[in-house]
Design a protein around this nucleic acid. Sequence first.
DNA 1: CGCAACTTTTAGAATTATTCCAATTCTGAC
DNA 2: GTCAGAATTGGAATAATTCTAAAAGTTGCG
Lengths: 141, 141
Amino acid sequence: MKASAQTNDALCAKLAGNGLRATRQREVVYSVILGKRDHPTAEEIFSRVKARLSGISLATVYNCLETLVQCGLVRQVNFERESTRYCPNLSEHAHFHDESTGRIHDIDLPAETTSRLRHLLPEGFEAASIELSFRGRTKAS
Amino acid sequence: MKASAQTNDALCAKLAGNGLRATRQREVVYSVILGKRDHPTAEEIFSRVKARLSGISLATVYNCLETLVQCGLVRQVNFERESTRYCPNLSEHAHFHDESTGRIHDIDLPAETTSRLRHLLPEGFEAASIELSFRGRTKAS
DNA sequence: CGCAACTTTTAGAATTATTCCAATTCTGAC
DNA sequence: GTCAGAATTGGAATAATTCTAAAAGTTGCG
């Protein structure tokens, strides 16, 4: 669960690039997200982080998450108005929300697909980001 | 802004089909959503409805919206964790959230596109619904 | 080292959107 | 008209998140 030296370097580099410090809290929050890629909520991250940094506060977890998102190290995922979830997968992908298990799965998006989707937009519409999410069930197979 | 007899009939029919009554509140809430298709929030709907039904309560607006959604007469739209917005466009479509104006535009989705998107899912994933949203800017053109 | 100027963290209060609740009002059937 | 169930209402409650002001930590520099 400890972040590898490599990912930790990536964190430091990105933070430094934005004039921010690599603090213990940020490192642990980031490594927790990396460690179990189950799209946890802030509360879930909070409780996992506390195992290693018992004194951390929820506000700090929110702060860290915000900086990580700003640095482009993690992505936010929202389903309807449920709590925001966090995901370290930076490649273009969609999400599948399994209604029976509550689990969220990453679905790889070929670049060709996103470009095709952009073409649906009328003249003059410039999409900076595209969000695609599925909701349904997975068949035990 | 008054709902046409036709749409009102549609409302009554759908409600009756679900064993629900066509009340004044439900009619007005529905006609407000139909009247200005700008994807209003519950609060916005509340204030528009009050112009015609001054005594209505916000709780009722939320109740009405819930029943309309259940009856399949309006669709909920969410962007990140912003307030839920409501939309009477029942055809398959995506949304474009214009960051400069805050406006939301409906983007028509050809059936072919949604079917292609479904094909991105791995074996065993059955999507009941697909949500696609763009965020960006529109160029004055 | 030892301060000055930041940056970060923290606990708790505040906010916001929405839901819940219990009481009242309304409606339709008999 | 009465009764039962449906709908509405206002206010309290909830949940996720943000704000705030104070405390703690860090960095550069003389």
